Amino acid sequence: MGAGRMPSTPTAELRAHMGAFLRGEGDARALVEAVRGAELLLPLLGENAVWTTDLEGIRWLFAFTGTREMHTFLQQKWEAAEPGELPAGLARFARYVAVDGEELLLLPVWVERDRVPMGVVVDVPSDARAFLPPVSGIVPDTIAVDRQPVAEGEVATS
């Protein structure tokens, strides 16, 4: 999706579900289904690595419904960085990959080797952001933290 294109219908539906959910009017299942049906953007770092952050034992992958939301996030990162840490103009020239939401929610399976649960946060700088934790109904049950047995040294939640 280019910078000048309008969001796809599935993307507009996702944004509507995100807003409704945060207002307390939404349905969690409908939100997850909207994510699965939308195309999302993942900004790339260096050698095609995607942006993530670790918080309280969960790795969060940043995904965006459009280039404007992604550029806002990258601009905030650039402004908060130490001098020389990130290149000037990062937001304007960021590389990204478009990913089908269904595939995106399977990504934690591919990175399971790190043994760190991974969730997805959509449009993190937005007031209507959506957090999709690595739990059953969102990610496959084989890696959902609420379905995994707790073994020594592993992270699990109830």
Rank of each mutant, 00 (worst) to 15 (best):
G84V: 03
M70C: 02
M6G: 10
R29P: 04
L42F: 11
V150H: 13
P125R: 15
A49E: 13
V109Y: 00
P133T: 12
V139R: 01
P10R: 03
P108C: 05
L107G: 08
M6K: 15
F21E: 13
P43E: 01
D141H: 08
D114V: 15
D141Q: 07
G19I: 12
S8Q: 08
D146G: 15
P7Y: 08
T9K: 12
G101W: 07
A98D: 14
V122N: 01
P108E: 03
A63H: 10
V155D: 01
V155C: 03
A144S: 13
A130E: 10
T157G: 09
L40R: 06
S126T: 10
M18E: 05
F21G: 14
R59A: 06
A49Q: 13
V155S: 06
V35W: 13
F93C: 02
M118N: 05
G137M: 06
W60Y: 09
V120S: 13
R36I: 07
G153T: 07
V109S: 00
M18V: 07
V145T: 11
E13T: 10
D27R: 01
P43Q: 00
D123Y: 01
L74I: 02
R129D: 04
G46W: 04
L22A: 13
A94Y: 00
H17T: 11
V124A: 12
L132R: 14
R59L: 12
E112F: 07
L90K: 03
L44F: 09
L55T: 10
L61D: 00
R5T: 12
G101M: 08
E85Q: 01
L74Y: 01
V35M: 10
Q76R: 12
E47P: 04
R5M: 12
I138M: 13
M6F: 15
Q148R: 15
D141I: 07
M18G: 05
T67I: 14
W60G: 04
R15Y: 07
G101F: 06
E82N: 10
R92C: 04
V35P: 09
E112C: 03
V124I: 14
D141W: 06
V139M: 03
V109N: 03
P149Q: 03
E102R: 12
L22P: 06
W110P: 00
L40D: 09
P125C: 11
Y96V: 00
T67Y: 01
G119D: 05
R5F: 11
A88S: 02
L61Y: 06
A34D: 05
G84D: 09
V111G: 11
F64E: 02
A30F: 03
I58W: 01
G119R: 07
R36L: 09
R95H: 07
A28W: 11
V139C: 07
G24V: 14
A144Q: 11
T65E: 04
L107W: 09
W60I: 13
G4V: 05
M70F: 02
D146Q: 11
G37N: 09
A3H: 15
P125G: 12
Q148H: 08
A38C: 04
V121G: 02
T65M: 01
S8C: 08
R92Q: 03
V124W: 08
